[in-house]
């Protein structure tokens, strides 16, 4: 087996060259090559992190905007409801007021009319006694040729009282 031929001078030289080549490779990789890879990886990691952060910030912003929009909508709706309610109330009030005023005026007119009617009837009733008394006296005069105005007045009174008009 040539690998176990340690008398071969090439064997020692192989190890010496191995140490030299391995040492140089280690130096080159650790000094120049690997920091370069690390730099790129770190840069990428930072960039991804930054992008994620920006995306998160944008999402938070959008969420805030949506919340503000929702708040504004709710507020506007509430305002509109309040305005409708107020308008309804004032309209109802006004209608009630108006109908009340109308009712009052109508009641007033009814009362005035009733008073006029009562006055007319009273005056009519007042005239009735006089007319019936004069009529009765005139009839009596024509029939009997005498006038008994006291008895006629008493009879008219009685008759009127009997009819409930006294």
């Amino acid at each position: 087996m040539p690998q176990l031929d340690f008398g071969n001078p090439l064997m020692i030289a192989q190890i010496v060259w191995l140490l030299i080549i391995f040492g140089v490779l280690y130096f080159v990789l650790s000094t120049y090559a690997l920091p370069r890879v690390e730099e790129v990886l770190e840069d990428r990691r930072r960039r991804i992190e930054g992008d994620l952060e920006a995306a998160q910030a944008a999402k938070a912003e959008a969420d805030a905007a949506i919340a503000a929009h929702r708040d504004a909508t709710a507020k506007a709706r509430a305002e509109a409801q309040a305005a409708i309610a107020a308008a309804m109330q004032s309209a109802t009030q006004e209608a009630a007021q108006r109908s009340e005023a109308l009712a009052a005026r109508l009641a007033e007119q009814v009362a005035a009319a009733e008073a006029r009617i009562a006055a007319a009837r009273d005056s009519a009733m007042g005239a009735l006694r006089q007319v019936s008394t004069e009529t009765a006296e005139a009839l009596l005069q024509r029939l009997t040729g005498q006038s008994e105005s006291a008895a006629v007045a008493a009879a008219v009174d009685r008759a009127l009282t009997a009819r409930g008009q006294g």
């Binding site: 030289a13 010496v16 990789l29």
Partner: peptide, 17 residues
């Protein structure tokens, strides 16, 4: 004493770098 073994080491180191 540079053998073909060392030449391959050098080649490997060059390829890695």
């Amino acid at each position: 004493g540079f053998s073909q073994s060392n030449a391959h080491m050098l080649l490997a180191a060059g390829l890695i770098t």
